[in-house]
Structures are given as C-alpha cells and as structure tokens.
C-alpha cells in the first residue's frame, strides 16, 4: 500500500482531536436562560461594580443574528480568575463564578448582568488590561468564534498582550462602551456589538 508521506511537524500532527460541529438551531433555551447573571453565586452577591454588558450580533449586510449562544468567561473585580492556575485564586470573590451564558433574540440582542472585571496578573507579573472572553456559537458556524471584550474605562492604547496583536484600526471594535440607553435597575450599561462578517467586522482570534 503506497501512501503519500505524512507530515510529522508536531504542531500539525494529524490529530485525533474530535471534529467540531455547529450548535444548530435547537440548543435548549433551558440551558441558557437564568445563566446570564454573573453577579450572584450560590446566594452571595459579587463584589465590585455590577454592570449590564449588552449589544447586538449582526451578520453580513448588517442583518441581526438571532438564536446565537454567547458564553462569557472573566475574572472578578480584582482581576482574579476562579481557577487554580491563577496564583491569586485563593482570594477570588466567593460571590463570583465568572462564567455566564446569553442568547440573542430575533433582533440579535443579548444581555449579561456581570461585574466590571479588574486587571488580571500573569504568573510572570505581566498585567492584562481588564477584559472578558466571549465565545459565539450559531447556525452557520461550524466552529466557535472567540474574541475579547475590553471596557471603555481603559485607554484603547493600553499595552495588553492580546490587544497588541490586533491591527490598530480594529482595536476600538473590541471595546465595550458605556451606553446610558442600556442602564437599568441602577446599573450602568456597556454596549458591545458584534459584527460576525462585513463592514466593521469584529476581530476574532485563532482557535
């Protein structure tokens, strides 16, 4: 049996990794609803500034993208991740779990209630500008999309190891902006709109 020689570069070894698939249209609402509030965990209130983080998801032609699943992962108000890899995790806010889910309605609108994150610190001391991680799953996406949300309280010129990788002209698109129209229940609102494809496209990262 003769086969073409297989490339054996470690980075691209023909892996056994299972193939991703689209989430499709029928991810149960019951898996999402009630998971978009990160400001409370097991009966405790999260420390820090509670905010609404909301916006719309649109696709090519500025058409709203309904029925997408958004997942958020972020550190607490002090920039600590609730995870053993964070050297400061013993001091993580017991009222903050750091993970949440939201879905877009037919108008493409989503909304999280969360905490304004603090700067996180790498084990080597490098500071990461305050941010949250966002994953987007939808019909038509056979792989997830991942991006990072920064907040307009921070300068767009911030020296962040991830932001630095984004072309300068596209950096403003990664910033959630304070938006009074989103304020509710005494909490300030931050708008983060996502353009999946087309003019003003949101920068997404290699996954």
């Amino acid at each position: 049996m003769s086969r073409a020689p297989v490339q054996t570069r470690t980075e691209t070894r023909p892996a056994i990794v299972s193939p991703y698939g689209t989430i499709g249209p029928f991810f149960p609402f019951a898996f999402v609803d009630d998971a978009n509030d990160l400001t409370e965990f097991e009966g405790r209130k999260a420390m820090g500034q509670h905010i609404w983080l909301a916006g719309t998801v649109v696709e090519e032609g500025n058409v709203p993208t309904g029925n997408t699943l958004l997942e958020l992962w972020q550190p607490d108000t002090n920039g600590i991740f609730r995870h053993p890899l964070d050297p400061r995790h013993a001091d993580a806010d017991p009222g903050f779990f750091g993970f949440g889910r939201a879905r877009t309605d037919r108008q493409g609108f989503y909304r999280f209630r969360t905490v304004l994150p603090g700067q996180s610190r790498e084990p080597d001391g490098t500071i990461r500008t305050a941010h949250a991680n966002l994953t987007i799953l939808a019909i038509g996406l056979t792989r997830r999309l991942v991006t990072t949300i920064f907040f307009s309280d921070q300068p767009e010129t911030a020296d962040d190891p991830v932001l630095r990788c984004v072309p300068q002209s596209a950096r403003p698109r990664l910033f959630a902006r304070k938006d009074n129209a989103l304020a509710a229940s005494g909490l300030p609102g931050y708008r983060f709109d996502v353009v999946l494809r087309g003019a003003g496209e949101t920068p997404f990262f290699v996954d």
Partner: peptide
C-alpha cells in the same frame, strides 16, 4: 448561513494567557 456569518477577515493569532488557559471549574455549580 456559513457565507453570511463566518468572518471574512483572517483570524488573529495571540498569546494564550491565564485568561484563556483558565475556565470554569466545577461548572455543575452554575
């Protein structure tokens, strides 16, 4: 939908920091 939703711009390479290398633990609590 794969032609109206998949980004047209190339995906951006970036380092993996704590933020990406951590994730929810004991997620059954949420």
């Amino acid at each position: 939908r794969s032609f109206t939703r998949v980004p047209a711009q190339p995906l951006i390479d970036r380092p993996l920091t704590l933020s990406e290398l951590t994730g929810p633990t004991e997620i059954e609590r949420r």
